[in-house]
């Protein structure tokens, strides 16, 4: 992980420390009508149901927790091996193992409700009706602040990927889920498409209150001695620092294509990483894979963002989408 002290240096070196301390960085944000004490959330599938980290970090310092993907019924997951480390990243094919919506409400939600961090529940299904069913069950629970519709898990036939790779189906499942949802609905998009803005627009048109991007990139690793895939599912989702530049580019593109707020995610391991997403247009960020190897990352990101804003005497909100483009580069043109 990058050294946090390298952030926000140089330009404001001469400023008095007292003045910096008094300056409010305005990290508190409102997204889709939900108030977050800061813009840093932990990503689905990397933070369990929150309680697992309670002994390691102060969960009350987080902006929000997105819990492991929940389905209407419990899911057993994929056979081992499920993960494989790659250069600056990892492949996973967990297979959406989860306790199911009912058990989540009974056993996991009561703890999450006690926290200052907002609780977002990642939802998936194997059909539009199944997504709707899951949302309906979760609607019975008290203390869920928003849903994050997972239409982008690459590792199961029923993980929603089919919905994330056909704009018509994206629209269908988002509209159906939105109709029954009691709380704001974010849609987590797949990067495994030719033009992600098409799917962003489809989700927006169907009533999504916000977008999360990106989910993992489909990848593969092979053991050359045995000629076998490194994970049992053959392919898996690539996450970690390796995907960050592609994720930043996609956030940049989508933020120019839609009006609803975007939460940026993909390889964030420091405040500087988070700032890239924010400057590209994200209103909030999620920390994912870094939670596995450095559980304190999200807290450091919060502190680093605060320090950056104080150093630069900038409110967080004015950083959003503050990218300065070269003058000869028309903002809309992206070739890839």
């Amino acid at each position: 992980m990058k050294n946090q002290s390298s952030i926000g240096l140089a330009r404001n070196q001469s400023r008095e420390p007292e003045t910096e301390a008094a300056f409010s960085p305005g990290l508190e944000i409102d997204l889709a009508g939900i108030h977050f004490q800061n813009p840093v959330l932990t990503a689905s599938g990397t933070f369990g149901y929150g309680q697992e980290f309670a002994r390691l970090i102060d969960l009350n310092k987080l902006g929000g927790i997105v819990v492991k993907g929940i389905s209407a019924e419990p899911m057993p997951g994929n056979p081992a091996p499920r993960i494989y480390e790659t250069e600056a990243g990892m492949l996973n094919a967990i297979g959406l193992q989860n306790v199911g919506a009912r058990k989540f409400l009974e056993e996991k939600l009561p703890f999450l409700r006690t926290l200052k961090a907002r609780c977002l529940v990642n939802v998936f299904g194997y059909s539009t009706e199944n997504y709707v069913r899951c949302v309906e069950i979760l609607n019975e629970g008290e203390g869920i602040d928003a849903y994050e519709l997972n239409i982008s898990c690459p590792n199961t036939r029923c993980g929603g990927m089919v919905y994330g790779s056909d704009p018509k189906l994206t629209e269908e499942v988002v509209a159906a889920s939105k109709r029954v949802s009691r709380c704001p609905l974010f849609v987590k998009l797949s990067p495994n498409v030719t033009d992600i803005t098409v799917f962003a627009r489809a989700a927006e048109a169907a009533g999504a209150d916000g977008l999360t991007l990106v989910n993992t990139f489909v990848g593969m690793a092979i053991d050359v001695e045995t000629h076998t895939p490194r994970i049992s599912n053959v392919t898996g989702g690539l996450s970690g620092p390796a995907i960050k530049p592609v994720a930043v580019r996609m956030v940049y593109q989508v933020c120019r294509a839609v009006k609803i707020p975007v939460i940026g995610i993909g390889g964030i391991a420091s405040a500087e990483d988070a700032l890239e997403f924010v400057i590209a247009g994200a209103r909030a960020v999620q920390v994912g894979t870094a939670n596995f190897y450095a559980p304190e990352t999200s807290i450091r990101v919060v502190e680093g963002l605060r320090a950056y804003c104080q150093h630069h005497r900038t409110h967080f909100s004015s950083l959003v989408g503050s990218l300065r483009l070269p003058e000869d580069q028309p903002p809309a043109s992206i070739e890839y």
Partner: peptide, 17 residues
């Protein structure tokens, strides 16, 4: 033993049948 992502029970990468 198994490959592990976190050791904390959240990545579910080390599950066995």
């Amino acid at each position: 033993e198994n490959r592990m992502g976190c050791g904390l029970g959240v990545c579910l990468g080390c599950s066995i049948r």
